[in-house]
Simulated scan of single mutants.
Amino acid sequence: MKLIYYKSQQGNIGDDLNVWLWKKIFGDDFFNKNEEVAFLGIGSILLENSDYLKEASKFKKKIIFGSGVRSINEKFHFDDSWEFFFTRGPFSSLKTTYVSENYITDSAYFLALTQEYKKFINQPKKYNISYIPYYASVDKVDWKVICDELGWNLILPTGNNVEKFIAQVAASEMIISEAMHGAIIADILRIPWKRSRYYSHIFEGEMVSEFKWNDWLYSIDVFENNYINCIKKPKKLKHKIVNSGYYNKKNQNRILATLKKHERIPFNLSSDTRFNEIVKDLKLKKNKLIDTYLQ
C-alpha cells in the first residue's frame, strides 16, 4: 500500500503525522501489504492535476481516508477505482462525492485511537499558553522573542518529531495556533485552542486557507471561524533595500501588541458529544478498512 502525502523538507506536523500515525493504527506492516493500493490520509492533498492524484492514479485502487480538498475551485472526475471512506469535512465531501454527508473529520483524530493517547491526555500541564506558528511562518519573525515577552511556550511545527510535538501540546493548558493541525491536535487532546493568522493565508492563498479551516471547523460543529489577526504586511521597497531588520522588528512589535489582546477572541473546543461521535465513526472506518484490505 502506497502512502501518498505532502512531504516538507523542514517538516510540517500535519503531514508528518501520516508516517507516524498509520502504523500505530494498522500495524507496522500496513504499507507492506496490498501493493496495488494507494492510501491518501491526512492533508489537503485533493487538488486537480496534482502530483498526489497523478501518483495515486498509477495504482489499481485508491483509498481516501480523511483527506481534504485544497480549495473550492477544484474540479474532480473520480472513477470507481477511488474509494472514499470519508473526507475531512462537509465541503470536501461535496466537492468530491457530490454529497455533503460523506465526512467525519480530519483523520488526525485517529490519534485518539492510539495506545499513546491516554499517556498524552494524562500528561501534567507545564505551560499556561503555547503558541504554534504555521510551518512557513517559522522563519518570518523571531517567534521565540515574541513568546518570551508574552510568557508563552513556543511549539514549532517543524523538525519531524511528531511525538515531541504532541507531548508539548499535551503539556499546555491552552493553545494558540496558526498551524491548523496545531489546533486539531489540541482539540483531540481536549485542550482549548484558538486560531491566529499571520502568513499562512499569504503562502497558501486566502481561498485555500479559509476553505481548509472551515472544512475542518464544520466537521467538529464549530461554526464560527474566529481568529487573532496578526496579518503580515507587505514589505516596503525601502525596507527591502535599506533595512530589513527594521522591518522585521516593526513586524514583531505589531504581532506582539496583537497577541497581547488575544482575549478578544474566544477559545474553542469541540463538544464531548461530537468528539465521542467522531471516535465511534473512526473505529467503524478502521474496522471496515481492515476487513476489506488487511485480512
Rank of each mutant, 00 (worst) to 15 (best):
Y6H: 07
Q10A: 14
G11W: 05
D16Q: 06
V19C: 05
L21E: 06
W22I: 03
G27Q: 05
D29W: 01
F30G: 01
K33L: 08
V37M: 00
F39Q: 02
L40M: 15
G43V: 06
I45F: 13
E48H: 07
N49K: 15
S50L: 00
D51C: 12
A56I: 05
K60T: 00
K61S: 11
F65L: 13
G68P: 14
R70V: 14
S71Y: 12
F84I: 15
T87E: 04
S100G: 06
Y103N: 00
T114L: 04
K118H: 04
N122G: 08
P124A: 02
K125F: 05
N153F: 06
T158G: 07
S172I: 11
S172C: 08
E173R: 07
E173Q: 12
I176H: 10
M180S: 06
W193I: 13
W193Y: 15
K194W: 12
Y198I: 08
E204D: 11
E204H: 09
E210D: 12
W213D: 03
Y218D: 08
N225W: 08
N226P: 01
N229H: 09
L237F: 14
G245W: 03
Y247V: 01
Y247F: 15
N248K: 15
N248R: 14
K250T: 15
R254C: 12
L256G: 07
E263Y: 14
E263S: 15
V279H: 10
K280L: 10
K283R: 10
K286M: 09
L289V: 11
